[in-house]
């Protein structure tokens, strides 16, 4: 039996696999190491934003700061890239390996979700939607291994929201720039300032929704953990040995973390993707597109008739 030189089971294949797994794990370990190296020792209630690792001076508007959330999201991007490479390594025409089945399941689910919510016309948006959903979900989940969740920083989610806003505006302009500008004066010109506000409330609300959910979950977890520690100290503090162990802190914070970190994080990732889909597909609806195509066809016909006559 002759093995394919680069096929599954060969040494090169396994080496590449190891490389991908390393790419998955090493960025996260580096982020953890950075956190351990930079974090000042603290006792008691510790609620702080992202740490600032580095400040680069000399930029025109303001100093460039490299924060923990940026570094963590880079790490998660690298790690996700490793995961994608690992899952799609050694694809075959007929799915045999578990990882290919998993990859196919993910791709199929994302494709179905996008085509069900956006219509077939936007089916190529599946790459963007899946990327933003995966990044958001894994960013929120990264606090399970002790990293600072990048989505708990408004700058990160605001970046994504601005990206989505640009996409929505670009899609609206597909119907003509003048049409887009005219849309601000509808139904009557008096509404123009209100239309402007509602236009710019989209990125603000998307950014704050995601950030607020993750951040408030983290804050509430810390507050409840601290309260339980204080409670066990005041209730059991008099007992000699057991008094030093915060016994009441066992259990409840884990259940809260299950809700705030896992459920809420995944839910927000789904909602962010869902709102992106609805806004993009609603920016230039099917009827407007068809009307525009019909108008173009009429114009083309008229031009052809003028040329002929």
């Amino acid at each position: 039996m002759t093995e394919n030189k680069n096929g599954p089971g060969s040494a090169a294949f396994r080496r590449a696999d190891m490389g991908y797994i390393a790419l998955m794990v090493i960025p996260l370990i580096c982020c953890l190491a950075l956190k351990v190296l930079f974090k000042p020792e603290s006792v008691g209630v510790d609620i702080s934003g992202a740490m600032i690792f580095l400040t680069v001076k000399g930029f025109p508007l303001q100093d460039l700061v490299i924060t923990e959330s940026q570094v963590n999201s880079w790490g998660i991007i690298l790690s996700l890239t490793g995961l994608c490479l690992y899952l799609t390594h050694g694809l075959m025409e007929k799915a045999e390996t578990k990882r290919q089945l998993a990859a196919e399941w993910i791709v199929e689910k994302c494709g179905n979700l996008v085509s069900a919510n956006m219509g077939e016309r936007y089916s190529e948006y599946v790459y963007f939607i899946a990327a933003i959903m995966g990044l958001s979900a894994f960013s929120s989940l990264s606090c399970l291994i002790g990293l600072f969740a990048p989505t708990g920083d408004v700058n990160v989610t605001a970046g994504w929201a601005i990206l989505v806003f640009a996409l929505v505006t670009w899609t609206k302009m597909q119907g003509g720039v003048l049409n887009y500008l005219k849309g601000f004066t509808e139904p009557i010109p008096v509404f123009t300032p209100m239309n402007f506000i509602s236009e710019f409330s989209l990125p603000v609300s998307m950014a704050f929704r995601h950030y607020g959910n993750v951040m408030s979950g983290a804050v509430i977890s810390v507050l409840i953990g601290t309260a339980l520690r204080g409670l066990s100290k005041s209730l059991l503090g008099a007992i000699p040995v057991i008094g030093n162990i915060p016994l009441l802190q066992v259990g409840l914070p884990a259940i809260l973390s299950l809700y705030f970190d896992v459920f809420s994080g995944l839910m927000q990732a789904f909602i962010f993707a869902m709102l992106t889909m609805l806004n993009v597909s609603g920016a230039f609806p099917q009827e407007a597109w068809e009307k525009r195509q019909a108008k173009k066809a009429v114009r083309r016909q008229r031009a052809a008739a003028a040329k002929a006559g």
Binding site: S205, F208, R209, Y211, G212, N213, M215, S216, M267, Q268, I271, L275
Partner: peptide, 12 residues
């Protein structure tokens, strides 16, 4: 989750 947003603004 979408209706929660307005409450979250207050919480933030």
């Amino acid at each position: 989750a979408i209706a929660e947003t307005t409450g979250l603004y207050g919480l933030i």
